[in-house]
Amino acid sequence: MKNIDIAVVDYGMGNLRSVSKALEHVAPDLNVVVTSDPQQIHQANRVVFPGQGAMPDCIRELDSRGLRQAVIEATQQKPFLGICIGLQMLFERSEEGNAAGLGVFAGQVKRFAAVDMHDTEGRKLKVPHMGWNQVQQPNQHPLWQDIADNERFYYVHSYYVCPDESGLVTGITDYPKPFTCAIAKDNLFAVQFHPEKSAKAGLQLLRNFVHWNP
């Protein structure tokens, strides 16, 4: 069987084509497989855990395909990149449908308040948080290589993670208050924004992930 360089976890939600196309774009020589087979996730050298849609549905679909254990194992064993709901699902619980997550990390997923959110000019801020916002890098990480501090990435989400362990935080965005937009631990990196839709900066982050050897 052909070696799987990167497995993109498919649990039947949203547009995985964008993620796989972007990975193929930055790593044309690698075998990128979109899969819902736990065995393939187990065999792959790297795992990307993307996400779109509502968290309760995502968790349900993940479980209905028997992928929970394979994903949790991958978070502990090999280069792992979570994206959007793929970041949120790593935590214990979300306010979205009061859904339990995978509990890889301690912490909650909360909703933006929507009321009384304004920018510095006094303009009303909308929910979902949709568009290009700046990412502060509080510390260095191989996945931030060749990406400027405060570079803009594309977001579309109404919920954000609040990790109990502050040491996890490796990216911060203001909307209007600071929230955690990236976490890192050992072989794992996960982001709230969509690198696959963030033009040059996003492709650079994916390139960094593909070459990352934690």
């Binding site: 920018d119 510095t120 568009g131 290009w132 916002n133 700046q134 405060n150 803009r152 203001d174 909307y175």
Partner: peptide, 8 residues
Amino acid sequence: MGLAKRII
């Protein structure tokens, strides 16, 4: 500093 206005 914050969310950019988008041009589409």
